[in-house]
Design a protein around this nucleic acid. Structure first.
Lengths: 172, 172
DNA sequence: GTTGTTGCAAATTGTTTGCACTGGT
DNA sequence: ACCAGTGCAAACAATTTGCAACAAC
C-alpha cells in the first residue's frame, strides 16, 4: 500500500510507451505533455485499477512531489477530454479514474461495505440495454456507473469487519 | 414547477397518514417528530419523484421557511436511518432521495445529458444479479445506483439543447 | 423535567478559478 | 518566442460539527 510506484530506477516499458503515445496525441491537438500529466498517467498506469482523485493525488505526490493538487484535477480533465482517461461513478459520492485502454472495456461493481471494486465482463448488461432501448429509447452506457451491492466476503460477514478496505470506508 | 406543494388549505390525506405513521416509528425508537422532519417528509410525499438535497431544501423552504438547511440534512439522515427514506446515487456526484414506500421497488436510470430520471421495473436486473452472484458471490443491490446513459430525446438530438432539464445540467 | 433536536456560526472537505510565471515546443 | 499549463492563494460549494436555546414527550 505504501509503494506500488516504481522506484526511479525501473523504467516500466508499458508506462513509457503510454507517455510517448499520449504526448503525441496531445501535440496533435496543440496541447502539451507536462510533469503533472506524466505523473497522473504513471500513477494510473502502475495501478491498472481504479483510483479516486484522492488516491491519484497521493500517488502523484510520491512520484512528483512538486506537483500541485490543482494540476492533478486539471490533468485529469485534460486527459479525459483526450479520451485517454475515463471515470466511473461509484456509489456514495466518489469518482474513480482509469486508463481507457486498461484491460479492455468492462463494467464495475462496488461493494458498499468495504469499497472493493470488481470488474465485470463488458457484455453483462447487453440484454438489459436492449430492453431499455426498446422500452424507453434509453441508450445505456453501462461502464459509466458502478453497480452497487455486497461482495462475497462482506455478504458472508454481515458486520463491518472492514475486510480489505482497498478503497473508501463507504457509508452507503 | 413552481408549486407542487399543497396550499395550507389542502390537508392531503396521504401525507397526513405518512406523518402520523412515521411519528409512531420515531417514538418507538425514542426519537421525535419535528417541524423539519415533517417538512422533509411532506416535500418527498408531494413529489413522488426523486429529489436532490438541493431540491428538498428548496421545497422545505417553501413549506417551512424557518427550517434551517442543516436540519434538512439531519432530517434526511434520521429518516434514512429509520428506513422511511431511501437514496439513489446518480451519476456525477448527486444523490436523490425518495420515500421507501413510493411506487414500490424500482430501479433508476439517469440521462447524462439532461439529468432526467427514468423509473425501471424492479426485476430488470434479476438475471444479471444471478450471474454476478454465481460469478463472484456478489450480492447486487440494483436500486442503489442509477444506470447511466442517454434518454430518447437526448440520443436523438446529440447536441445539448437541454430538452427538459428537470434535474441538474449534468456534466458527465 | 428530560433529553432529542434545532438554529446558527464556524469548521471541514473537495473542487474550481484568477493570475503572474514557468516550461514545452 | 509563444502560449499552454503550472503553482499558489483565494473563491466556492456542499456538508458537518459544536453548542446553547428550544420544544416534543
Amino acid at each position: 500500500m505504501t509503494s506500488e510506484v516504481p522506484s526511479p530506477g525501473s523504467p516500466d516499458p508499458d508506462a513509457q510507451a503510454l507517455l510517448a503515445a499520449v504526448a503525441v496525441q496531445l501535440r496533435a491537438k496543440g496541447e502539451r505533455m507536462s510533469a503533472p500529466r506524466r505523473a497522473v498517467l504513471t500513477a494510473l498506469a502502475t495501478t491498472a485499477g481504479h483510483l479516486s482523485t484522492e488516491e491519484i493525488a497521493t500517488a502523484v505526490a510520491e512520484i512528483a512531489p512538486q506537483v500541485h493538487r490543482t494540476s492533478v484535477y486539471r490533468a485529469l480533465a485534460a486527459l479525459s477530454e483526450l479520451g485517454v482517461v475515463q471515470h466511473v461513478h461509484l456509489g456514495h459520492g466518489a469518482t474513480a479514474y482509469h486508463l481507457t485502454g486498461t484491460r479492455g472495456p468492462h463494467l464495475h461493481a462496488q461493494c458498499r461495505q468495504c469499497g472493493r471494486i470488481i470488474d465485470l465482463p463488458a457484455d453483462l448488461l447487453v440484454s438489459v440495454a436492449d430492453r431499455m432501448g426498446a422500452l424507453h429509447g434509453f441508450e445505456l452506457d453501462a461502464t459509466h456507473v458502478a453497480l452497487s451491492g455486497l461482495c462475497a466476503d462482506c455478504a458472508a460477514e454481515p458486520n463491518f469487519e472492514e475486510h480489505h478496505h482497498k478503497h473508501s470506508p463507504i457509508a452507503t
